[in-house]
């Protein structure tokens, strides 16, 4: 696998939308609009992702080898819907980004900054 030869750090940090796309695909293979819905719902509408931009990102992710096309998991689904899933590299990058964010949050909490209350 050539993907593993790439340095995962090269892809970091991920854009919020891209991060969420990878999360969506890591959970289950999804098709286009499914991803949009997932991202909108799971981010509580904070990450705005429209279909066009999604495919812009998908184009890059496909090119970078982070995601790949998958066989449809639903038997009688429309053939025009293409399902996507993460590659091994995609999962590695997602893990690295999660770790980076976790580390960042941990560092920031050490600084003793005021917390946002009421949430």
């Amino acid at each position: 696998m050539t993907e593993t030869m790439k340095n995962t750090d090269d892809f970091l940090p991920l854009k919020a939308a891209v991060h969420m796309i990878l999360v969506a695909l890591a959970e289950a293979p999804r098709h286009g609009y499914d991803i949009v819905k997932f991202v909108r719902e799971e981010s509580g509408g904070r990450i705005k992702l429209a279909t066009g931009p999604l495919y812009r990102h998908m184009h890059r992710l496909l090119e970078q080898g982070l995601v790949e096309e998958r066989e449809s998991s639903v038997a009688d689904d429309d053939a025009r819907r293409i399902y996507y899933g993460p590659t091994l590299l995609g999962l590695t990058v997602l893990a690295a980004e999660n770790a980076r964010l976790a580390q960042l949050v941990a560092r920031v909490s050490q600084l003793g900054l005021p917390r946002v209350t009421g949430e």
């Binding site: 286009g32 949009v36 279909t51 999604l54 495919y55 496909l62 025009r80 819907r81 293409i82």
Partner: peptide, 23 residues
């Protein structure tokens, strides 16, 4: 969209738009 993007994702993108509009 530029041709390079189109080449790869034009078809599913169109479908996704239709899904969204319908949804």
């Amino acid at each position: 969209y530029p041709s390079n993007i189109r080449e790869r994702v034009s078809c599913p993108m169109q479908q996704a738009f239709l899904d969204e509009v319908a949804d």
